[in-house]
Simulated assay, not measured.
Amino acid sequence: MPVWFEEERPRRPRLSRERITEAAVALLDAEGVGGLSMRRLAARLDCGTMSIYEYVASKEDLLDLALDAALGEIDLAEAAGPTWRDTLTRLMSRSRQVMRRHPWIPALLGTRPLLGPQALARSERVYAVLNEAGLTGPQLLGAVGALSSYVNGFVLTELSWRSRHRDPAGESDLRHRAAEHIARHADRYPVLTRHARLDMDDFEEGFLLGLNVVLDGIETQLNQ
């Protein structure tokens, strides 16, 4: 049974589900999903492993609680803008910032039931913004899915790239050599030669460019 369907029972004050969740988030930030275990979490909390099981039933519950707590860092009030596009741009940008702060989030988003209060509040906000703009039914579902898939996929790629290419000079050299390689084979890759920006290393710019394309598509649906 998902942890969200259960009521937390009163326990001894030394531990709490909230404190355990905070420690789990910190451990995930430091070690990633593969580094999360009840034993390591107990060591961080300076308690026995069995003490944790008085508050959560399994590691799966810990992942759900930690993910929901991290998603709560996406500030809904600060994301409010004058138009639906402004609001969604701010929401998606803040989502990216939180995912970059907690690099384990993207890998969990597609595998966890997003039923926690923080996740549901943010889903409600995205649905509400698009619904108020005029989308309903399959168009609304498609728009939400397109936004989520774009942001999650972009950040996952960004994190993977940054984990492998930490040296700016080395990255610049790789991009330069890749551009030269394509240019040498312009007969095979004429469009890439003319239009691909392999020297573009600004992920912020790239993120907003792609997001605007997704939002343009949504706006087209609104104007039909």
Results as ranks from 00 to 15, higher is better:
Pro82His: 11
Thr83Trp: 12
Thr83Tyr: 12
Arg85Trp: 12
Asp86Pro: 09
Asp86Cys: 11
Asp86Gln: 11
Asp86Ser: 15
Leu88Cys: 02
Thr89Val: 13
Arg90Thr: 03
Arg90Met: 05
Leu91Glu: 03
Ser93Lys: 10
Ser93Trp: 08
Ser93Thr: 15
Arg94Gln: 15
Arg94Leu: 10
Arg96Val: 06
Arg96Leu: 08
Arg96Trp: 07
Gln97Ala: 15
Val98Trp: 12
Val98Leu: 05
Met99Gln: 13
Arg100Thr: 11
Arg101His: 10
Arg101Pro: 03
His102Arg: 09
His102Lys: 05
His102Phe: 08
Pro103Ile: 08
Ile105Lys: 05
Pro106Phe: 03
Pro106Glu: 07
Pro106Ala: 05
Ala107Phe: 06
Ala107Lys: 09
Ala107Thr: 06
Ala107Asp: 14
Leu108Arg: 06
Leu108Pro: 02
Leu108Lys: 00
Leu109Thr: 10
Thr111Gly: 00
Pro113Arg: 12
Leu114Gly: 06
Leu114Ser: 09
Leu114Pro: 08
Gly116Lys: 10
Gly116Thr: 09
Gln118Met: 11
Gln118Arg: 14
Gln118Val: 04
Ala119Ile: 04
Leu120Thr: 15
Leu120Met: 14
Arg122Ile: 03
Arg122Pro: 10
Ser123Ala: 07
Ser123Met: 13
Glu124Ser: 12
Glu124Cys: 05
Arg125Pro: 00
Arg125Val: 05
Arg125Asp: 00
Tyr127Gln: 12
Ala128Leu: 09
Ala128Tyr: 03
Val129Met: 06
Val129His: 02
Leu130Lys: 08
Leu130Ile: 10
Asn131Trp: 09
Asn131Asp: 11
Glu132Leu: 08
Ala133Asn: 04
Gly134Trp: 07
Gly134Ser: 07
Leu135Phe: 02
Thr136Ala: 13
Thr136Met: 05
Thr136Asn: 07
Gly137Trp: 06
Gly137Arg: 04
Gly137Leu: 03
Pro138His: 04
Gln139Tyr: 05
Leu140Met: 01
Leu140Arg: 05
Leu141Arg: 09
Gly142Pro: 00
Ala143Met: 03
Val144Trp: 02
Val144Pro: 04
Val144Ser: 05
Gly145Glu: 01
Gly145Lys: 05
Gly145Asn: 08
Ala146Trp: 04
Ala146Thr: 03
Leu147Phe: 09
Leu147Val: 04
Leu147Ala: 03
Ser148Pro: 00
Ser148Leu: 12
Ser149Ala: 14
Ser149Val: 06
Ser149Arg: 11
Asn152Asp: 12
Gly153Met: 09
Phe154Arg: 04
Phe154Pro: 09
Val155Met: 08
Val155His: 04
Val155Asn: 06
Val155Trp: 10
Val155Glu: 08
Leu156Cys: 01
Leu156Pro: 01
Leu156Thr: 01
Thr157Trp: 09
Thr157His: 13
Leu159Lys: 08
Ser160Cys: 00
Arg164Pro: 00
Arg164Ala: 12
Arg164Asp: 07
His165Lys: 03
His165Ile: 00
Arg166Ser: 12
Pro168Trp: 03
Pro168Ile: 04
Pro168Tyr: 11
Gly170Tyr: 01
Gly170Pro: 02
Gly170Asn: 07
Gly170Ile: 02
Glu171Leu: 14
Ser172Phe: 04
Asp173Val: 03
Leu174Ala: 04
Arg175Phe: 01
Arg175Thr: 05
His176Asp: 00
Arg177Ile: 06
Ala179Gln: 10
His181Leu: 15
His181Val: 11
His181Gln: 12
His181Lys: 11
Ile182Lys: 01
Ala183Ile: 03
Arg184Tyr: 00
His185Trp: 07
His185Glu: 09
Arg188Met: 06
Arg188His: 05
Arg188Ala: 10
Pro190Asn: 00
